[in-house]
Design a binder for these strands. Structure first.
Lengths: 198, 198
DNA sequence: TCCTCATGTGAATCTATATTCACATCATAA
DNA sequence: TTATGATGTGAATATAGATTCACATGAGGA
């Protein structure tokens, strides 16, 4: 028999493992058997801790949301000023993508139609939460004078999200051949010119 | 019995229908039974014209690719100058998304991991083809002097793709509430400032 | 007109997964 | 030490969906 674990710890472990699997195969390729195996258990054991497949995906999304939001908040706290916060955030996204972390994939495929309605609306909320956090940083930038006041913060926040999204696709498709950090550095210059003072 | 049709016409019809279904439900939710019904046939009839599900998806991607590329080429031909070509292309993307056309969805979910390897590499090629067409327009812009020469065309092309991608997500999630044409107009100003002079 | 092939149909079949269930085993509290 | 509830296991079961197959039918050429 495998190592026993109380259900709270097991849920946590499985949610993280599920997120990793989602990163590799997407929700389409995700299945209970692989999840169970990845934590050294048998498929039926998953049902000791989750109501079913959707419940697992829901928990994985919670993990995802916490990680992403933490990433934004950390960048905001650590940087000296709002623009540097966005730059830091962008480079950290790139690093995560390079290391194959789960965050990037989900961010990119969040929009997949089909699938469970509740799951979709959850990913929608997560994305909006992300964007509104970035939007807040943009507003900070306007207060500090780094960002032009005629820039619409919501628009700039969506543009920021767009800096990384196509790069995620290419990275996923081309792997190492696509130097995402280098791309991000170049596109950051464009973004700064777009929102900053000349 | 349903209307008979020769296999070439039927394949074409089914490929288009498949693309519409993909737009609604994604590849995860796409199934042969619904496809058959949407053209007034019975599931097994699909196999008269396609080898199987993957073959259908492949054909749908061909339709998708042709439409997208045509969109870029048309914008390039119709506009007076490269920057206006990009603006026209962007607004047409927005229109397509508003009308619920299939193009936007696939563009957005193209990166979904999992799934058939051949299909993935096909979507990758399509995306790269799209980006390199946009890249060519950017180069034109540099030649004509509208785009700064220190801008990397590949980077700008990816940024351009990023203008529309997050908007697709929001549109998909929020529907009518998200005014994508208005957003696109605002983000275009940012893009022009990023790549243009002054 | 009659034949034959291409196309359409409905009923199987096959397969991958999720899910359930009866049973086993371990931790721990009394 | 023993009883009990929580966790893990392996063998069913259930189901959705793709795929196959034998048969039907209609259009067009001999």
């Amino acid at each position: 028999m495998s190592q026993r674990m109380n259900t709270e710890a097991r849920r946590e472990q499985m949610a993280r493992a599920a997120l990793d699997l989602l990163a590799e195969r997407g929700s389409e390729g995700f299945n209970i058997a692989d999840l169970a195996e990845s934590v050294g258990l048998v498929p039926s054991a998953v049902y000791r801790h989750f109501e079913g497949r959707e419940d697992v995906l829901d928990a994985a999304l919670d993990v995802f949301r916490d990680r992403v939001y933490r990433l934004v908040d950390a960048a905001r706290n650590e940087a000296e000023n709002p623009l540097m916060a966005l730059e830091l955030l962008l480079t950290r996204h790139a690093k995560l993508i390079e290391s194959g972390g789960a965050v990037p994939y989900i961010m990119a495929s969040m929009n997949a139609p089909g699938g469970h309605a509740a799951r979709r609306s959850k990913t929608e909320r997560i994305f909006r939460g992300y964007v509104s956090r970035v939007e807040a940083v943009v507003r900070d930038g306007q207060v500090s004078g780094q960002v032009r006041s005629d820039v619409d913060p919501a628009t700039a926040a969506l543009l920021f999200a767009g800096l990384i999204q196509p790069a995620i696709q290419l990275r996923h498709a081309e792997g190492e051949r696509f130097d995402i950090s280098a791309h991000v550095a170049r596109v950051w210059d464009l973004f700064r010119r777009a929102v900053g003072h000349d």
